[in-house]
Amino acid sequence: MTLATRPLTVTINGRTHGPLDVPEGLMMIDVLHEMLDLTGSHFGCGQGICHACVVIWDRDDHTSEEVPTCITGADFFDGKRIRTIEGIAQRNDTGEIVALSPVQQAFLDRFSFQCGYCTPGFVNAATVLLERLQRAPIARKDVETTVASALGDHICRCTGYVRYYQAVRDLILATPGLTRDGA
């Protein structure tokens, strides 16, 4: 095979992979699925619309954002640090889950998902949101609109969104430091 490739070095869930020879033209989701066996970021549309495939890009300035991997070329991530759904829960050295993240636990407790296909995207979106609020808390009265804004691009076909939104709202309200009291 003589396809042109580009080297990719990327840190995923704290582990550095590469340099990998990634054929030019592959999206990051292709690399995650076919080269790194990280299939938890799900393919929904290939247009960056449904957001089932988003990973968390952790920037050097300590901010983070969701990036849809179905439309973002693998080369964009060269030298970057990302988190996928597989890295959100705490795991021990053998990979067993020892603790779910607060977002994951909230989704589980609140029956927030059904088929689970969109769930990794929602987990990542909510995780980014909570981390943002940690840095810049908001007024309690703005929590619902903030949640709707953070999750509003994510498509879910099963749940009608209610339990996802409620779980994130209630988690924010219950977590110290994410809202400005009395505002």
Binding site: G40, I85, L100, F113, T119
Partner: peptide
């Protein structure tokens, strides 16, 4: 919680 929940919320291979 639903009995398939942990696998789904942690991105295990379900599908």
């Amino acid at each position: 919680s639903r009995i398939d929940g942990i696998a789904k919320v942690t991105g295990e291979k379900v599908f």
